[in-house]
Simulated assay, not measured.
Amino acid sequence: MAGNSGAVGASVTSRALSLLAAFDENHRRLPLSELARRAGMPLTTAHRLVADLLEFGALNRTPEGDYVVGRRLWDIGLLAPVQTGLREVASPYLHDLFGATRATVHLAVRDGTEVLYVDRLRGNASVPVVSAVGSRLPLHTTGVGKVLLAHAPAEVERAALADLRAVTRYTITQPGTLRRQLGRVRREGWATTAEEMSLGACSVAVPVVQRDEVVAALGLVVASLRTDRPRLVAALEVAARGIGRALQRLPPVAPGER
Rank of each mutant, 00 (worst) to 15 (best):
residue 65 G to C: 01
residue 65 G to R: 02
residue 66 D to Y: 03
residue 66 D to W: 00
residue 66 D to E: 11
residue 66 D to S: 06
residue 66 D to F: 06
residue 67 Y to W: 04
residue 67 Y to I: 05
residue 68 V to E: 12
residue 70 G to V: 08
residue 71 R to I: 13
residue 72 R to M: 10
residue 72 R to E: 13
residue 72 R to P: 00
residue 72 R to F: 04
residue 73 L to Y: 03
residue 73 L to I: 15
residue 73 L to H: 03
residue 73 L to E: 01
residue 73 L to A: 04
residue 74 W to C: 09
residue 74 W to E: 15
residue 74 W to Y: 13
residue 74 W to V: 14
residue 75 D to G: 00
residue 75 D to P: 00
residue 76 I to N: 00
residue 77 G to P: 03
residue 77 G to Y: 13
residue 77 G to Q: 13
residue 78 L to W: 11
residue 78 L to P: 00
residue 79 L to R: 15
residue 79 L to M: 14
residue 80 A to H: 14
residue 81 P to A: 05
residue 81 P to M: 09
residue 81 P to Y: 06
residue 81 P to T: 05
residue 82 V to T: 12
residue 83 Q to A: 11
residue 84 T to V: 15
residue 84 T to Q: 13
residue 85 G to R: 15
residue 85 G to S: 14
residue 85 G to L: 14
residue 85 G to I: 09
residue 85 G to P: 00
residue 87 R to N: 02
residue 89 V to Y: 06
residue 89 V to K: 15
residue 90 A to R: 01
residue 91 S to C: 12
residue 93 Y to K: 01
residue 93 Y to L: 07
residue 95 H to R: 15
residue 96 D to M: 13
residue 96 D to W: 09
residue 97 L to E: 11
residue 98 F to I: 00
residue 99 G to L: 11
residue 99 G to V: 05
residue 101 T to V: 09
residue 101 T to Q: 08
residue 101 T to D: 10
residue 101 T to R: 05
residue 102 R to H: 15
residue 102 R to G: 04
residue 103 A to G: 03
residue 103 A to W: 03
residue 104 T to M: 08
residue 104 T to C: 11
residue 105 V to S: 06
residue 106 H to I: 11
residue 106 H to M: 09
residue 106 H to D: 08
residue 106 H to S: 10
residue 107 L to T: 00
residue 109 V to T: 15
residue 110 R to V: 06
residue 110 R to Y: 05
residue 112 G to V: 08
residue 113 T to V: 15
residue 114 E to A: 11
residue 115 V to A: 14
residue 115 V to F: 00
residue 117 Y to E: 07
residue 117 Y to A: 06
residue 117 Y to H: 15
residue 117 Y to P: 07
residue 118 V to R: 03
residue 118 V to M: 03
residue 118 V to H: 03
residue 119 D to F: 01
residue 121 L to Q: 11
residue 121 L to N: 03
residue 121 L to Y: 04
residue 121 L to D: 04
residue 122 R to P: 00
residue 122 R to E: 14
residue 123 G to H: 08
residue 123 G to P: 08
residue 123 G to M: 07
residue 123 G to T: 01
residue 124 N to S: 12
residue 124 N to D: 13
residue 125 A to F: 10
residue 126 S to F: 07
residue 127 V to P: 10
residue 127 V to E: 11
residue 127 V to Q: 10
residue 129 V to K: 02
residue 130 V to R: 15
residue 130 V to T: 14
residue 130 V to Q: 14
residue 130 V to H: 12
residue 133 V to W: 00
residue 133 V to A: 12
residue 133 V to P: 03
residue 133 V to Y: 02
residue 133 V to L: 02
residue 133 V to C: 03
residue 134 G to P: 08
residue 134 G to W: 05
residue 134 G to S: 10
residue 135 S to D: 06
residue 135 S to M: 07
residue 135 S to G: 07
residue 136 R to P: 03
residue 136 R to Q: 08
residue 137 L to R: 13
residue 138 P to W: 09
residue 138 P to L: 09
residue 139 L to H: 04
residue 139 L to Y: 01
residue 139 L to D: 02
residue 140 H to Y: 12
residue 141 T to D: 01
residue 141 T to W: 04
residue 142 T to N: 11
residue 142 T to A: 11
residue 143 G to S: 04
residue 143 G to F: 01
residue 144 V to H: 05
residue 145 G to Q: 09
residue 146 K to A: 04
residue 146 K to H: 06
residue 146 K to M: 06
residue 146 K to T: 08
residue 146 K to W: 09
residue 147 V to E: 05
residue 148 L to P: 10
